[in-house]
Design a protein around this nucleic acid. Structure first.
Lengths: 138, 138
DNA sequence: CGGGATCCATTCCGATACTG
DNA sequence: CAGTATCGGAATGGATCCCG
């Protein structure tokens, strides 16, 4: 089975989530709590890079040229805090720091990659929908 | 096959995404373009509700009590613009407006629900990781 | 009923300069 | 090399009032 086939689920295969919307505790909503972090501007890009292999700070910076130093540091720290990636310092001179995915991160990357694949596959459809919508407003 | 089993992929089943990170056009990055919308504060919640059945504006508002009127309107319009949901006005007095998922929206909801399931299943693990991280800082 | 318009606080994020 | 510190603009989101 190719995991990719999941993208083409028939409707009856789509998992039905029936959370009790009327009783949601919004201060502790798991979905929002995790998704809001994943949805950050640089999170998925860094998770994609580190899903392929470990990288050092400077390597990541070169891989993603338009990320600022500040956001690279901050996003990596947030991903580490959530347990998706691990940070290892090698006491060389000058010091080098390597980031790698954890088991939890790889576990997340399964369903996340499905969604990213969907986004690539359907980007044109969404862009077309946006164009129609904007057009209909004159 | 249960779509849910995808969440428990073995490593060799995880789809390998190898985007050319060195050549990414960031002004037109499909992943960020779509994910940033999905990652909004209320998008997934409304997609979950409408994945189950169509709802009217006021019904959605009661389902998600702490969303402001402004954000409900805006999020629904953004989801409609991207083609995930459709808006139908019934010219009653006073008017009623119904929102329902489109085929594109249901197609998105397949992989999205996988991710939401992961978030629920692993929320405790992430919270524990955060606690360890914060603890390690004193 | 289903919004639109406005104002305001908070958060996000980039640019720049500095450091062990 | 791998960060930290500070500043300021942009975007996000809530509260309130108004409207057909």
């Amino acid at each position: 089975m190719s995991a990719r086939t999941v993208v083409n689920l028939r409707p009856q295969d789509v998992p039905i989530r029936t959370p009790d919307l009327s009783n949601l505790d919004f201060s502790n909503c798991p979905v929002r709590d995790l998704i809001s972090q994943i949805g950050g501007k640089w999170s998925t890009l860094l998770l994609e890079a580190l899903a392929q292999q470990p990288y050092r700070f400077g390597e990541l910076r070169r891989l993603v040229p338009d990320i600022s130093q500040r956001m690279l540091t901050q996003t990596l720290r947030d991903l580490q805090r959530d347990g998706y990636i691990a940070r290892e310092v090698f006491p060389t001179k000058p010091p080098s720091v390597e980031y790698r995915m954890t088991d939890l991160g790889r576990s997340l990357y399964g369903p996340l990659a499905q969604l990213l694949n969907w986004a690539e596959d359907n980007h044109e459809a969404v862009r077309a929908a946006r164009a129609r919508f904007d057009q209909s407003l004159g």
